[in-house]
Structures are given as C-alpha cells and as structure tokens.
C-alpha cells in the first residue's frame, strides 16, 4: 500500500508541470498561434522566479514565498511570450521560427543574467526548498485518500488542478473561450462578427506564457534545489502532451497523467520490488514512457482535432 501512495505522489510531481504547460499551449494554439516556444518560456519563468526565491529566502519562507514566486513566474513568462506574440501576430512571421528563437534565447539569457546578477558569478541558482507540505491539516487524516493526495505534496499540485478546471470552463463555457476558439478555427469568420482577432491571439499567447512560466517554476521546485538554465525538455514533452490530448483540456489532463505515471515507473522502478525482480535493463524502463506514448498515439490519431487556422498568420486583407 505504501508503494501505491508513493507512486501516486511521484506521479503528481511529473504530471502537474506537464499539465499546466500543455494547457498553456492549448490556449495559444486554440487562438491560432502555434507555440513551440514552451520550453523557452518555462526556462524564463523558472529563471525569474527561482532567482526571486534565492534573493528573498532570507526574509521569507514557505507558502507565502512560493505564492509570490508563482506570481513572478507567470508575469515573466507572459512578458517573454510577448516576443512570440509580436512576431507571429503583428509581423506575421513563421511561428516555428520565432518559437525556435525563443527556445534558444531563454537558456542563453538566463545563464548570462545569472552570472551577471549573482555575486558568486556562477550560472546555477541555489535555493532552499521550504515548500513541501508534509500533511494538509484535516484532509491529510482521511484514510487512503489523505495518504494519496494530501500528504507530502506541494501547493502547486492543487493550483495545477484548479487551473485545469478553470481552463475547461474558460474555454467552453464563456464568451471569451468561444471567441478564442473561433479565432483558431476560422479567423475571418470571427472578424466578420466583430471579434478582434489580433487581441484574442495576444490573449491566447500570453495565457500560454503565464502558464508556461508557472510550469517552469513548478518543475524546478518539485524536482531540484538549484536552477541550471534547463527544464530537461519538459516544454517539448508538454507540446507532445498537448497534441496527444487533442487540444482538449480533459484529454490533455489524461495524457499528462498517463505520461506522468509512465515517467514515474521509469524513475522509481528500482524501489518497486517486483519490477526489480524482472531483471530487465534500466534503459528499458527509461524508454517505456516514450514507447508507450507512441503506441497509444497509433490507436488514437485517426482524427486529428487540431485547430484549423493554427500556424497561419491572420491577414485582414486576405480573401
């Protein structure tokens, strides 16, 4: 039973950053802008917020510091994504190109800035992790459920779940969501009924920036105690989860859970007795999440639900 609780807790560590970032990518692509820059945005959000934590941790600690860092991560991610928005919306640039530029820019800038700003002159940013919640009061005492979801967690896990619910409501139950989706499917039609396509696309990209930055912070805080200008390819994995999830919030959540669980098995197989007994090379477990995803895709990709106008710059004058 303890193994099960451990697995579920670990799965959350892998799933939540993927979920949050993929949901961000969903808003961007649903508005019609392909966002391959998620990796770079995550790095930027992680960099700014971890730098903030490392400077403030002498005066603050615990959840208040984490909440402020979350705010910083979201703002910095959104601001950084403006570069992508400007290129792909105003300048009608190829969205893959500007996204790639951002991916290259983010680690370079964060290494450069970390060396400039930190008194020690090194590129790694150290921080003390004071954010883990050993047990949520009251809820943590519930048998089984308490062990699974309310012990040994981070606040960010609940924020991630909340974002999922808000995202689904925002996309399908509000005027804003309807307009956003229209801009990704048929911008000319949206424009003809008075929707400002440019503004909606800016909104989409900036939401993806905010959530991408937040995802970067969540990834670093839950897996490490220093930031070294990388999020280990999680931005690209989130992109994969987004496509896997067919641009739909609930399916994205399932895809992120699936991938997170597979990733957990591959990361922790050595502490699961019956898996160790199989005597299979560790590399097999390392490959399993990726192979499993490919296999699932083979059976689930018949009908792609990609937004029709994603990747096409909107030109008001085009016929």
């Amino acid at each position: 039973m303890n193994t099960l609780f451990f697995l579920i807790q670990q799965t959350m560590f892998f799933t939540i950053p993927l979920l949050v970032v993929a949901l961000g990518g969903m808003f961007s692509e649903r508005s019609g802008v392909i966002n391959i820059a998620l990796e770079g945005i995550m790095i930027m959000g992680g960099f700014c917020s971890i730098l903030f934590i490392s400077f403030m941790q002498d005066t603050m600690a615990g959840q208040p510091l984490l909440l402020l860092a979350i705010l910083i991560a979201m703002i910095s991610g959104a601001v950084f994504s403006l570069l992508h928005a400007y290129a792909s919306i105003n300048m009608k640039a190829d969205q893959t190109i500007s996204g790639t530029a951002l991916n290259l820019m983010a680690p370079a800038v964060s290494i450069f800035a970390a060396r400039m700003i930190q008194p020690s002159g090194v590129q790694q940013i150290q921080f003390t992790n004071t954010f883990r919640i050993a047990k949520v009061p009251v809820l943590g005492d519930i048998p089984i459920l308490g062990d699974m979801f309310f012990q040994n967690v981070y606040l960010t896990t609940y924020i991630g779940v909340a974002i999922l619910i808000i995202a689904a409501i925002l996309l399908y139950k509000t005027k804003f969501g309807l307009r956003l989706r229209a801009c990704g499917e048929h911008p000319q039609a949206a424009d003809s009924v008075g929707v400002n396509v440019y503004r909606m696309r800016y909104a989409g990209v900036m939401i993806s920036g905010a959530l991408g930055g937040l995802g970067g912070l969540i990834f670093v805080v839950t897996t490490s105690t220093n930031f070294n200008a990388t999020v280990a390819g999680y931005g690209f994995l989130a992109l994969a989860v987004l496509i896997f999830g067919q641009w739909n919030p609930w399916r994205i959540a399932l895809a992120a859970l699936f991938f997170g669980f597979m990733k957990t098995i591959s990361a922790t197989y050595s502490s699961i007795p019956w898996l160790v007994q199989l005597q299979v090379s560790g590399y097999v477990y390392k490959m399993i999440p990726y192979i499993a995803t490919l296999v699932v895709l083979v059976f689930s990709s018949r009908n792609s639900q990609a937004p029709k106008a994603a990747g096409v710059p909107y030109d008001q004058g085009a016929r």
Partner: peptide, 21 residues
C-alpha cells in the same frame, strides 16, 4: 560568457522570421 553567441544567434533567427514583412 560564450552564451552571448547564443543570444546573438537567437536574435538573428528571431529577426529572420520577419522575412515576410
């Protein structure tokens, strides 16, 4: 720091995206 080169490359690619304009 050598990362300045990456910043330059990234900037070049970013502005290369403006080719259409």
């Amino acid at each position: 720091v050598p990362e300045i080169i990456d910043i330059i490359t990234a900037t070049v690619i970013y502005f290369a995206a403006f080719a259409l304009i």
